[in-house]
Amino acid sequence: MRRVRASWAVIAVVAAVTATSGCGAAGRAAGGSEVTELRYQGSVGQVTPPELAQDLGYLGNVRLSWIGNTISGPQDIQAATTGDTDFGGAFNGAIVKLAAAKAPVKAVVGYYGSDKLTNMGFYVLDGSPVTSARALIGKKIGVNTLGAHAEAVIKTYLARNGLNDAEIKQVELVVVPPVNAEQSLRQGQIDVAALSQTLRDKALARGGIHTLFTDVDLLGEFTAGSYVVRTDFLKKNPTTVRTFVTGVGKAIEWARTQPREVVQARFADIIRKRGRNEDTNLVTYWKSWGVAGTGGAIAERDFTTWIEWLNAAGELKGKQITAKDVFTNEFNDAARDGAAR
């Protein structure tokens, strides 16, 4: 789920132009009826919660329409903001930035996070002199992109371990495609690599590296990313949104409660049936989606953590924004009163 992510500047530009965007799914509904086809972007070799929900029959008469694969979380929510798709998902910090830029979107259900099974870790070579936060001063950390999940976690880690702003600026973040991160670490091009999911498991199996820290070590289990929809789409299609969000929530709970091999087999079957010429190997490494809230329910801390970080970093430029400005559990009947687990 944690793909290459776009910069904050691009998000701000997209948000600025959304007021003039006239496209979107709402225009496809005839005679005031609600849209029942939702355009979205997928991920190569992976199954998303909405795709599982559709396969399980949880979306009722709502049908997903795949338009391609996304290259990043911010790109995905940008597409939803401009109306090129009907929903998109990204790191919650990216959603905060988008909302602060007055983009007309609302987060409606969580879809990925970090738990004891699935998380983002920061890894060093065995024998590395980097053994603490302070040892990172002057060192290079490979991340999938700037301004997203990895950067937020790293800078929170540094600040909580006593580094001041000047010292934090001396820790260099280097953009490295996730598939190249392990190799870059082993070749000494970077001192620390951010790794997660399949790439992390494969790297650990090869040996010679160990964990410096993980996001779960730092923050506990948390929902890290959510799906957003445009606010005008919400108003025009409330029943469709409720069906979609509740279906996604039910799919998250199905995956949480089934044996892992059952979920993996279902994913492989979905990938084969959709006929996109994909390898099913990745699903054998799936452990969980890491979503903290029951049925994808969003908790205030899922956003306040990043609002506080962005404020401290000066990214919000004094703009006042609260978690309740960004998300709603109103459409999630699977959330059991919206309470986080």
Results as ranks from 00 to 15, higher is better:
Asn144Thr: 14
Thr145Gly: 15
Pro129Gly: 11
Leu158Thr: 00
His149Ser: 12
Leu199Ser: 13
Lys169Ala: 15
Glu151His: 00
Lys102Phe: 12
Leu125Glu: 09
Pro178Lys: 09
Gly207Met: 09
Arg186Lys: 15
Leu199Phe: 09
Gly138Phe: 01
Ser132Pro: 04
Ala135Phe: 03
Leu136Ile: 01
His210Leu: 02
Ala194Ser: 15
Ala107Gln: 08
Val176Leu: 00
His210Glu: 12
Thr131Cys: 07
Leu146Arg: 05
His210Arg: 13
Tyr157Glu: 02
Ala135Ile: 02
Gln183Leu: 13
Leu136Glu: 04
Arg200Gly: 07
Gly110Val: 05
Lys155Ile: 04
Val179Phe: 11
Ala159Asp: 11
Lys116Glu: 15
Pro104Leu: 07
Ala166Lys: 09
Ala101Asn: 09
Asp126Trp: 03
Gly147Asn: 06
Tyr157Ser: 01
Val143Ser: 07
Lys169Ile: 05
Lys202Asp: 13
Lys116Thr: 15
Val124Asn: 08
Ser132Asp: 11
Arg134Ser: 14
Asp115Trp: 04
Gly162Tyr: 03
Arg134Gly: 10
Gln187Arg: 14
Ala194Leu: 07
Val124Leu: 08
Asp165Gly: 05
Asn180Leu: 12
Ile168Ala: 08
Ile190His: 04
Ala133Pro: 01
Leu146Asn: 01
Ile209Pro: 01
Gln189Gly: 11
Lys155Arg: 14
Ser114Pro: 00
Asn180Gln: 14
Met120Gln: 13
Met120Phe: 07
Gly207Leu: 00
Ala135Met: 07
Gly207Asn: 11
Arg186Asn: 11
Lys202Trp: 03
Arg186Leu: 12
Asn161Cys: 05
Arg160Asp: 13
Lys116Met: 13
Ser196Ile: 11
Leu125Trp: 01
Val153Phe: 01
Thr131Gln: 14
Ser196Leu: 10
Lys139Asp: 08
Ala101Lys: 00
Val179Leu: 12
His149Thr: 14
Tyr123Leu: 09
Asn161Arg: 06
Gly138Asp: 10
Asn164Asp: 15
His149Ala: 15
Asn180Thr: 12
Leu146Trp: 05
Val143Asn: 03
Thr145Trp: 10
Val179His: 12
Val192Ala: 09
Pro178Ser: 15
Gly127Ser: 11
Ile209Arg: 00
Glu167Ser: 03
Gly162Gln: 06
Gly110Cys: 10
Gly127Met: 03
Ala193Thr: 05
Gly127Lys: 10
Asp201Asn: 13
Arg206His: 10
Val171Met: 01
Asp201Ile: 11
Lys102Gly: 12
Pro178Gln: 15
Ala148Cys: 10
His149Pro: 01
Thr211Gln: 13
Thr211Phe: 00
Val153Ser: 05
Ala166Asn: 09
Glu182Thr: 14
Val176Tyr: 04
Gly113Ile: 03
Ile168Val: 14
Lys139Ile: 04
Ser196Glu: 14
Val109Asn: 06
Val108Trp: 05
Ile168Lys: 02
Asn119Arg: 10
Asp126Gln: 08
Ala152Ile: 05
Asp115Leu: 07
Pro178Ala: 15
Thr211His: 09
Ala181Gly: 07
Pro129Tyr: 04
Ala205Trp: 07
Thr211Cys: 12
Ala166Tyr: 06
Ala135Asp: 13
Ile137Ala: 08
Leu158Glu: 06
Thr145Gln: 13
Ala194Lys: 05
Gln187Val: 09
Thr156Cys: 03
Leu199Pro: 03
